[in-house]
Amino acid sequence: MDAIIIENLTKKYKDVIAVDNLTLSVQKGELFSLLGVNGAGKTTTIKMLSCLTQPTSGDAFLNGKSISKDTAAVKSLIAVSPQETAVAPSLSVQENLELMCGVHGFTKEKQNTKIKELSKLLGLENVINKKSGKLSGGWKRRLSIAMALISEPEILFLDEPTLGLDVLARSDLWDLIRSLKGKVTIVLTTHYMEEAEALSDRIAIMKDGKLLICDTADKIKKSAQTDSFEQAFIRIVKGAVK
């Protein structure tokens, strides 16, 4: 069953076409990656799917709800962890999580249960009373993902979740993302080839707003006639593979 159906989605900014006639679908529980160089249209796609930006034309349906006509219903299904960490710096980890519970209208009881559950899942228990502005980059990312997960979203958008993290923090975060696989549909954007290859069920490669290919990492490598995913990416983006 498809969680996301994108039909001819297009976004134009004056003379620039950020996303050009994008059509694809993401299955329920799938971890789907959008891969591309800067300006490929990954973040704009996520912004349209999360109702932050109106498409110029086309539409997308998240669990059957249109991003153009039913934004309130779409917002109740999704959560976004933006490219920047997007946490309230003077609030503690606990207070940041309480903020998200509050804006989703949780009861006090549900709030306490969710915070306990998520701080355990994401290993935030030891920093729960720390001011989020004082956390390291890796911990801020974890908190950012916890803030996105707290609303129990059916679809989670992770925009460059490991950008700027060191190797260990990235590896920890990969484990965390893997642990979410199957429980929630995840759409992830990334610059990192190895990240997309290691985590994704399927990968869409974009360039200049256009979808170049959408398949599993193995099939993408096969179609580019190489064993290296990075080489496959380069060949596809440079137009060597049609």
Binding site: C51, K75, E84, T85, H104, S151
Partner: peptide, 10 residues
């Protein structure tokens, strides 16, 4: 981007 995050909530 905190506002961006909150804009995707109800």
């Amino acid at each position: 981007s905190l506002l961006q995050r909150l804009y995707t909530t109800p």
